[in-house]
Design a protein around this nucleic acid. Sequence first.
RNA 1: GUUUCUGUAGCUCAGCUGGUUAGAGCGCUACCUUGACAUGGUAGAGGUCGAAGGUUCAAGUCCUUUCAGAAACACCA
Length: 946
Amino acid sequence: MDNTFDSNASEQEIYRRWEESGCFKPNGRTDRGAFCIALPPPNVTGVLHMGHAFQQTIMDILIRYHRMRGENTLWQAGTDHAGIATQMVVERKIAAEEHKTRQDYGREKFIEKVWEWKAKSGGAITKQMRRLGDSVDWSRERFTMDEGLSRAVREVFVRLYDENLIYRGKRLVNWDPKLRTAISDLEVENREVQSHMWHLRYPLEKGVTTKDGKDYIIVATTRPETMFGDTAVAVNAKDPRYDYLIGKKVILPLVNRPIPIVGDEHADMTKGTGCVKITPAHDFNDNEVGKRHSLPMINVLTEDARIVDKAEVYDINGEPSDVYDSYIPEEFRGLDRYKARDLVVEEFKKLGLLEKIEDHVMMQPYGDRGGVPIEPYLTSQWYVRTKPLAEPAIKAVEDGSITFVPKQYENMYFAWMRNIQDWCISRQLWWGHRIPAWYDNDGKVYVGRSEEEVRSKYSLDSAVVLKQDQDVLDTWFSSALWTFSTLGWPDDTPELKTFHPTDVLVTGFDIIFFWVARMIMMTLHFRHEVPFKTVYVTGLIRDEEGKKMSKSKGNVIDPLNMIEGISIDQLVKNRTANMMQPQMAEKVAKRTRKQFPNGIEAYGTDALRFTLAALASTGRDINWDMKRLEGYRNFCNKLWNASRYVLMNKDKGNPKAEGNLKLSLADRWIRTKLQYAIRDFRAAVDSYRFDQAAGVIYEFLWNQFCDWYLELTKPVLWHGEQDEKDAALSTLFHVLETTLRLAHPIIPFITEEIWQNIAPLIMDVKEGDTIMLKDFPEYDASQVDEKALKEQEFLKSFIIAVRNIRAEYNLSPTHKLSALLISSNGDDRIAEDNFRNLAQLASLESVSSLAKDAERPFAASRLLNADTEVLVPLKGVVDKDQELRRIDKEIEARKNDVARGEKKLSNQAFVGKAPAEVIGKERQKLADAKSELQKLEATRKQVEAL
RNA sequence: GUUUCUGUAGCUCAGCUGGUUAGAGCGCUACCUUGACAUGGUAGAGGUCGAAGGUUCAAGUCCUUUCAGAAACACCA
C-alpha cells in the first residue's frame, strides 16, 4: 500500500464494481424486515450541489447501515421533470442555437425536442450521485414523466375529480407575465422594492361633497395603472371622515365610470388616506371585498401584463357582464403595465387630480422562476380542494404515525397545514403531464383517463368533437405521488407490499410545504397509509460567512470540486460563467482567488462524506468550513496509515490466531473500547445523530486505536514472545477489520479498499466479496473487560504524568528516566507488571515502588489519584522552588474542591432533597479531595525538607 | 407585525430528559523528522456558557424579560 490513499484513482473503480455486481439491489430476504428510502427526486436539469451531497450522504449512511444488517434494503431514486425549469432550458437552447421559439416548433415537436435534450443532457446529476458513492438501485430509476408515473398522475387526477376534490374555477391566481403561466403561491417570493404611493383624487358624483366641502375624495395607491379596473372605493364604516359617503358614488376619472363607495373593514383608517380603490380583478384583498359587496370584476391586463384594448367585465361569479362598458382610452391600449402607470399619473396631473406622491418601501411578489413581478390575474385554473385532504395529514403527524426529526419542524408543518389554501395545479406550459380533461364545442368539460374513456364514460357520440385541455399539471403534483408511484401504483405490485410505507424521508425544511405536506396528503388519500414513518429534516449548508450559497453570489462550492480538486483558474471560470452582471463577475473572481489562492485540492469522497456527517447536528444552519474537510481528510489518511502499520506487521505472527490467545492488558482494553464504540455508533445512527456517529469513529480510531493501542503493540511486536505477538496481531486485525465495517456507511470507499487488503488475511474472502454486504458489527458484552479498562486507563495517566514532567523540565525523550510509585491500592503492581509498555511510551529505564514511609528522594512528582503518586527523581534538574510552586498551586485547587464539597454537604436542603446517588457521589468526591490534599501537604513538607 | 430558530474557547461546533472541575476539531505556543502517518507525534495556553431577573438543594441546560443575528408566514390602499 502507498503511504496515502489515492481517492481519485480508486473510488470510481470501486463504485463500478459494486454497481456491476448488483450490490445495490434489495437482497430479497424476508427474515430481517425491509428498509426503504425514496430519494427526493432532483430536478432533471439540476447539478449536484452541497444540499444534495449532504442529504444523500445521510441517506446512503442509513441505507448502507441497514443493508449491512441484512435487511431487505431499497433506495428508490429518480429525477423530476421540473416543468418550467426544463422548458426554459430547452427554449433557451433553441433560441441560442437556432434562433427559434417554442412556437416555431409547435407543441408536439417542441416536446420531442425536450425528450431529446433529456436523453442527452438530462440527469447529469445521476452521474454525480455515483461519484458520491450513493448505493442507489439504478435498475429501478424513475422519471416523473415515465409512462408508469404518468399513468399514476392521470389516475389520481381522475379520481380526485370524481370525488369532487379537483375543480376548475375562474379565480385570481399568481400570474407570471413573463412565462405566461399561473404559479402557486409557494412559487412566489417577496422582495423589498423602493416604490411610491400615489394619492389620487376621485371626483364625487354631482352634488355630493365631503364635510369640508371638497368635491372629491383621495385614494392612496401603489398601483395607479389598475384604476381602469376599479369597481368601488372602500372606506371604513366606523370612519367619521367618510361614513356618510357610503352608498354615494365617485366618477372614475379617464373612463368616467360611476362606481360606489362601500363600507368595508378592509379599509384601514390608519393607513393611507383611509380610502381604498377596489380593483377585484387585480388584487387579492380587493377580490375579497368585491365578493362581500357583489362588485363586478374588470380585467384590464393581457397575459403579458399590458393594458387590454377592451376591458373585460365579469359579474361576481366570473360570468361575462355588461354592467359597465369596456372602454379603455386609446393611448393606454397595449401599453406595458409600468408605462401605463406613468401615463395614468401624468393624466391625473393634467386633470389636476394628482394630490401628491410619496416614497414608499414595499414588499413586491416576484415569480421565483421568471424573476419578474407577478400579477394577480383572473383566469380559469384547476384546483385541488386541500382542506379535506389536509385533515388526515395533520392527524398523522399529531398521532405520531409520522415523526419529524428534529421535532421542532412539526410546528412549521402544522402552521401551514392549518390554514392551507386550495392548490392551483394547472400550468400554462407544454412540458408536463397534460391535464386529462376534454371540452366539447360548448366548452363542457369531461374528465377521464383518456379520450376513449371519456367518450364511453359520458356516452359521447363519435361525432362530438373533443379538445383536450391545453394546460399541464404542476410538477409537484406528480412528485406528491413519488413514494408509491415509483413502486408501481396503481398496480398492486410486490414492491408496494414490501417497501411501502417507506421508512425515512431525508429532506431540507425548504420543501416541507412544496413536497412533504403534499406527499402526506396524497399518499394517505390513495394508499390509506403514510408515505414514510420519519421525516429527517436537514439544516441548510451555507458558506463560511453564514450566507446562503447561490450562483448569483458566486459563493457556491461544488461538492465534486472538493472530491476531485480543481485549479483556481477553472474554479473562477465556473463561478463567473453565465453571470447576469459583469461587474459582479469581477467581484466574485477576486473573492474566489483570495479564498482559494491555489484552487481546491482533491480531498476525496470519503473525506467529504465524513465532514457532512460530522456537521449533521440539529441546527438549522450549517456553515461550511474547508478546515473541517481538511481535518477529516487527515482522518482518512490516519486510518489508511494505521492499516499500513497492521499490514506491515502481518508476518510477525499469526493474525488468524484465535481460541486460547494470551491477550495482554492492552489487547483486552482495546477490544473493550471497540465494543463501546460499536454500541455508541449504533445508538447515534438509530437516533439520527450522524455528527455523534462520526465523532465516535473519530475518537475511537484516532485517540484510542492509533494514539495508544498501536503504540502499545510496538514493544510486543519487537520484543515480545511469540504467543504475545499472536495475541497482538490477532487483536490488531480483528479490531481494524471490525472498525472498517463500523465506519463503512460513512466512508465507503477507503474502507472497501483497506478491507480488501486486510480481510483475506483473517477470513475466507471469495472473489467478488465486498465489505458493503458484510455484517454490521454488533455489540458483544463478552468482549467487554471492565477491569482491563480501568487498569489501562491508570497506565495512561501514569504515562501522561511522566511525559508532563519531561516537558516541564524540557528533557529529551532520549534521556531515560526512572519512576517511583507510592501507592496504597496496588497500582504500583500494575505498573510493574506492564513495565515494558511504560518503558516504551514514557521512555523509562525503571519503574519501582516506594514504601509510603520510606525516605523521599529529590524528585518531580504527580498525584495520579487519591491513592497513588508517581515520583521521577531528578537530582540537579528539578528546581526545588519550581516544584514547591507547582505543589502549592495544586494544594490551592484541592482546597477549593474540599471547601466546595463541604459547603454543599453541610447544606441541609441539599442533603435532604437531592437523590442519594448524587449525595453519595458528592461524598466520594470530597473524600478523594481530602485525601489528595493530605498527600500533597505531606509531599510539600518532604520536598521542603530536602 | 406574528411565529420559530440561533447566540458556549480566536474560528466552526458538541453538551440527552437540570446533578463532578463545561468538551471536540481547527488555529495558537513550546518541543520532536522515534522503524504507520509531518495529511504526523508530545506537552500546553485559552471560556464569568449574549445580558438581567426568576424557579430549584442544584441552571450552559427550565421560566420571564431584554439585546443581537437568521428564517418562515402575513400585511402595507
